[in-house]
Design a protein around this nucleic acid. Structure first.
Length: 208
DNA sequence: CCCAAGATCCACT
DNA sequence: GTGGATCTTGGGA
């Protein structure tokens, strides 16, 4: 991984200008980094989901639904779409381009850097549970609603080069059982056999 | 203003 | 596998 002054090098804006399903797969293995006054925390992305409004019933932007919350999804690719779910903040990357409200939800990381800080923020010691879910990883990295709309190609919140997965598993998205036919779309991607993935699920197929 | 729903997590059985 | 915690958002009155 490339490092500069103890920090990492953000991927350029152009990285985010690829079709959402490709981006969701390209993000696997990349390093998600958050720098704060408390320190730097980072982890490899090991699980993602694609949300492709306006035709995706599971997406907040279904039917081009444009509200205060979803506004950033209509902006340019590479911005942060964060939102609150119960007591948790969930982190998404805007994709699709201007007026195409699509996004990739980051569902799990493999802890890499700043692990002690993550343990403090989470109040637990178990490495496996630090970032194994969309609500857990934002808490470990210190990602909040203040990051809404941030440009991911510049600090303090950005994505850097990581590793290239040898195998990617594909399955149905999690937690959208009320979204009718959209529940079956094969738009969940994870690094095969990675132990930090949020849930075990039978893969529909594997990409090698 | 009121209220229902939710891209979750954890403890418990 | 199930249920409760907990609170914001958005739609409707």
């Amino acid at each position: 991984m490339s490092k500069l002054d103890g920090k990492f090098v953000p991927l350029p804006e152009g990285f985010y200008e690829q079709p959402t399903l490709l981006l969701a797969k390209s993000l696997l293995g990349c390093l998600l980094v958050k720098e704060t006054d408390e320190g730097v925390a980072a982890g490899y992305i090991v699980e993602t989901e694609a949300y492709i409004g306006p035709d995706d019933k599971a997406a907040h932007s279904y039917k081009n639904r444009r509200t205060v919350r979803t506004e950033v999804m209509f902006q340019r690719s590479g911005l942060v779409y964060s939102y609150l779910m119960h007591t948790h903040c969930l982190f998404n990357i805007v994709s699709g381009g201007v007026e195409k409200p699509e996004a990739v939800l980051i569902r799990a990381l493999e802890p890499v850097y700043g692990i002690e800080l993550m343990k403090e923020r989470r109040g637990i010691e178990d490495l496996k549970r630090l970032t194994n879910g969309p609500g857990n990883l934002t808490k470990s990295l210190g990602i909040t609603m203040e990051d809404y709309g941030h440009q991911l190609f510049i600090p303090p919140l950005y994505i850097a080069k990581g590793f290239s997965p040898t195998s990617i598993s594909v399955g149905k998205r999690i937690g959208i059982d009320n979204s009718e036919e959209a529940r079956d779309y094969p738009w969940r991607f994870w690094v095969s056999n990675n132990k930090y993935v949020s849930r075990h699920q039978k893969s529909l197929y594997v990409i090698t």
